[in-house]
């Protein structure tokens, strides 16, 4: 078979819907086309109507979406433990409301005595800090929101 016969597939799909069947196979000397829809696929099609609405509502209620998908989220470049200050008892690198410039150090992340400064990828104002001192973070976990 060199090309897909779209018309044939579409006709078979319509036949599925009309007949309520879940599977049709059509064969000629040259091709065999099998069109099927499984029960899970049907329920998946139906699910978003009911499932998406509450998720959107709760995000709206909290005034935010998932912080990880926020365009101003700066994420952990490694697994490790976050420090908000250069050493215990010292003032934090940054606080909510601070204006920061690109390249500025925001946190340290330690993994096994390797200390890695997390730097601002962009300048802006810090609107949220999502981690606390001494907290373990996973790779890619959002640390701070910059807007």
């Amino acid at each position: 078979m060199t090309t897909i016969d779209h018309d044939a597939v579409r006709q078979l799909a319509e036949l599925l819907d009309d007949t309520g069947l879940t599977e049709i196979e059509y064969q000629t000397d040259e091709v065999r086309i099998r069109v099927a829809k499984s029960a899970p696929a049907v329920s998946y099609m139906a699910a978003p109507v009911g499932a998406a609405a509450p998720a959107a509502a709760s995000a709206d209620a909290a005034g935010e979406a998932d912080p990880a998908s926020h365009p101003g989220a700066i994420k952990a470049p490694m697994v490790g433990v976050v420090y908000v200050a250069p050493e215990p008892g010292a003032p934090p690198f940054v606080q909510v409301g601070d204006s920061i410039s690109k390249g500025q150090t925001l946190f340290l992340i330690e993994a096994m005595k390797t200390f890695n400064p997390v730097r601002a990828e962009v300048g802006g104002r810090i609107t949220r800090i999502l981690v606390g001192d001494g907290q373990a973070v996973e790779y890619g976990e959002p640390l701070v929101i910059v807007e």
Partner: peptide
Amino acid sequence: AGPARLAEVGF
């Protein structure tokens, strides 16, 4: 090697 792997250098 990137920050995710550099801690291995301590070992």
